[in-house]
Design a protein around this nucleic acid. Structure first.
Lengths: 243, 243
DNA sequence: CGCTGCCTTGATCTTCTTCAAAACGTGTGG
DNA sequence: CCACACGTTTTGAAGAAGATCAAGGCAGCG
């Protein structure tokens, strides 16, 4: 019964071929930041962005680099992370299409506080932070949307803080899985497959625990029929029992 | 040498008598949200706010209540908290003048995710979330400022996540103290007194640890001359050695 | 002056980390 | 296509860190 899947079933999202041409326009219009804009404004904004493709594993921004750009994920998955005092990985967040990273508007510290790495093949739209700030100031609709995006992100972050405070490795892993399933879930064989390649180490780094502990917990959940998991992937079988 | 102060030296901030009249105008102008506004706009904004005073211990918003208002701390200290699965306290943040709480703009979930309680005598300016949203949309400068405020808060929240992930009770307490000292520090007897009344339980709840563990750690820090502490208060003597 | 609640300290126990080794998947090159 | 080698995952056992239980001390207050 415990047929551990031998192959991580998960489509390595491949943006057809980067995100060039006017596909960008559509992406921008769908991005939370610019959803309210009229056609003309979209064009104005579009002109200010450039798109960059990254192969899996490539660093997009690096902790400590001067914080000069704002990026928006157009396609693929980006991991936001850094390293704790003792060199241990901390995975702060996993980003999908529409999510932003980097410096919002030239506010705050002048260097990035975290690194961003492409997990998939990623296409990211990027803009100079000061240029974005000018856009904010000249097109009010963008600023209003930015407020919405940020307050949502802040709420999620508070939720994460709350959960990390409720110490207990198992419930933290459960929370991480629930969150990932909501954000990146794809229906697959009567389960919700988390459609992102995540190692045990990375899941552990999101829950603030150790790799081995994470592995043990996932094994137990698999035994109990709550999840299905293999090398680099997890699927949620019984969301209700994730507490 | 270990003369543990018998009286928590800390001035219980008392707003002269609430925050009425046009003192409000000044407060609004100093608040991060409205710093850029012209006189006329300040008046427009001012008219939409009302001020409410709270005695120490009073609940300002309660987790689960319909999220209809945005509040800004004008004077005093507000604690943002809720309770984990097992009924344990989680102190998400401590707010001072200029900080906001509640619903930013009618976005997000329709109930508050956390409770807010007055620690001091508090004066809070409050506005209906939908009214605030209208202000955002009609006065672009507010939206731009809101973006700045939110991105700062988000950055701080990410920093907290990072710190909670870097597991080790002592360094987490150190981080909490450093953060509080920066935000609420007042120079006192060659030390930095954290000018907020915080019990051991509350400090523990910010670091995600247990009350007793927190007490032990603070005792050790006191032994090492890093901090001075008493009932309900902590002062940092040697910030450098807080790692 | 004694009550109440916060803080401290000790002892024990649970949980998670750490160290170690084996099993398994995956991609590689023959 | 198969076998090998590498990195990930799993599992075990020992150890440490922190939680929990319990009791005593101290401050503030009626």
């Amino acid at each position: 019964m415990d047929t551990r899947r031998s192959t991580p079933v998960r489509h390595n999202t491949i943006p057809p071929e980067a995100c060039s041409t006017d596909l960008r326009r559509r992406l921008l219009r769908e991005s939370p930041f610019f959803a309210d804009l009229t056609g003309g404004d979209i064009d104005r904004v579009n002109a200010r962005f450039n798109d960059v493709g990254y192969e899996p594993g490539r660093a997009i921004i690096r902790e400590g680099d001067p914080a000069t750009r704002l990026g928006i994920v157009a396609a693929g998955v980006v991991k936001l992370f850094n390293y704790g005092d003792s060199g241990n990985l901390v995975l702060i967040d996993v980003l999908g299409p529409g999510d932003h990273f980097g410096s919002i508007a030239g506010f705050g510290p002048d260097t990035y506080q975290e690194s961003a790495q492409a997990s998939d093949l990623v296409c990211a739209l990027q803009i100079d932070a000061s240029v974005f700030r000018t856009l904010l100031e000249t097109i009010p609709a963008i600023a209003v949307r930015a407020v919405e995006v940020l307050s949502n992100r802040l709420r999620l972050s508070h939720e994460l803080v709350r959960q990390l405070g409720a110490h207990n490795a198992e419930s933290r892993v459960a929370y991480v899985l629930k969150r990932l399933a909501t954000r990146f879930g794809r229906s697959w064989e009567h389960m919700t497959l988390i459609d992102v390649s995540l190692s045990r180490e990375e899941i552990a780094a999101m829950a603030g625990i150790q790799t081995e502990t994470c592995s043990r917990i996932l094994s137990a959940m698999r035994r109990d029929g709550i999840v299905e998991a293999g090398r680099g992937w997890v699927a949620v079988r019984d969301p209700a029992r994730l507490e």
